[in-house]
């Protein structure tokens, strides 16, 4: 049944439907992947702020590589890790644009660390959405800098050994040390209450940009059921039990 074919009896009002900024295209994410929730929340916030016609997204390399298909928005595709550099150019050239980047942990926290740190340090006035699923999802589940100690991935088949590969990189804590950023927060996507908090954080991050307040980043902790080789429910449970202790939730920096 498609929504269009359904007759709703009189006296019922619609309380949830697809946001306007989302296109009709199905996503290319796996079943149960929380990338889909993040993608929707951004669309809702753009609708709520009424900024659809002036927003430009920057799509990453990673499982969200086709992000530009999923929205009714203008987009630029950045090469792997370079989204914050592209965003800097766009926003500085045309400050009326609302610019956001959407980046995975391989993209933002490995190959793109330099671009991210320096954009944050300069306090560039755009919004970064950072999806931390502790893995390189798209390429087949290799270790990311955010992978947990002992976590098995295709490149750490016996579990991540911190002695040779280092520790989970807490990007939000790192950026919160800098004077440049306005707002750095970490939220999670594993259940409805946390999704509501993530939405609120995204609303703050986009509102900051509207008000010219500078660099905001929302880190969203997610799971990758496919590469974790778990059902979506189990992957979300793993997220709560294993990932959240390493990545505590909350605002890390709120500059008034």
């Amino acid at each position: 049944m498609s929504p269009a074919e359904t007759t709703i009896p009189q006296g019922y009002g619609k309380v949830f439907s697809r946001p306007q900024s989302l296109s009709d295209a199905p996503t290319t994410y796996c079943p149960g992947c929380l990338h889909g929730v993040a993608t929707r929340l951004i669309a809702e916030v753009i609708d709520e702020l009424g900024i659809k016609d002036r927003t430009v997204g920057i799509a990453p390399v990673g499982c969200a590589v086709f992000l530009y298909r999923f929205y009714n928005l203008d987009f630029v595709q950045a090469s792997h890790g370079r989204a914050c550099a592209v965003a800097t150019g766009l926003k500085r050239a045309n400050s009326d644009l609302m610019v956001f980047s959407y980046q995975g942990d391989g993209d933002l926290a490995a190959i793109g660390t330099a671009e991210t740190v320096h954009a944050a340090n300069r306090g560039e006035n755009f919004t970064v959405v950072f999806i931390n699923n502790q893995i390189y999802g798209m390429t087949g589940g290799e270790m990311a800098p955010t992978t947990l100690p002992g976590q098995r991935t295709t490149t750490t088949p016996r579990g991540r050994d911190v002695a040779s590969t280092g520790y989970p990189l807490r990007i939000s804590e790192m950026l919160a040390q800098l004077d440049g950023p306005r707002y750095i927060t970490r939220q999670s996507l594993h259940d409805a209450p946390h999704i509501a908090k993530s939405r609120k954080a995204l609303l703050t991050a986009f509102s900051n940009q509207l008000e010219g307040k500078g660099f905001s980043m929302v880190e969203l902790v997610a799971a990758c059921p496919t590469n974790f080789k778990m059902s979506p429910d189990k992957a979300n449970k793993w997220l709560v039990e294993q990932a959240l202790p390493a990545y505590p939730l909350g605002d890390l920096k709120v500059k008034e």
Partner: peptide, 24 residues
């Protein structure tokens, strides 16, 4: 109950929710 929890978690935004209006 029309709480929308299912729609909030659906990664594919496949769920629409309707709720009985108050007066009704």
């Amino acid at each position: 109950t029309g709480c929308t929890i299912c729609a909030q978690i659906c990664p594919d935004v496949a769920i629409e929710v309707y709720r009985k209006e108050k007066a009704e």
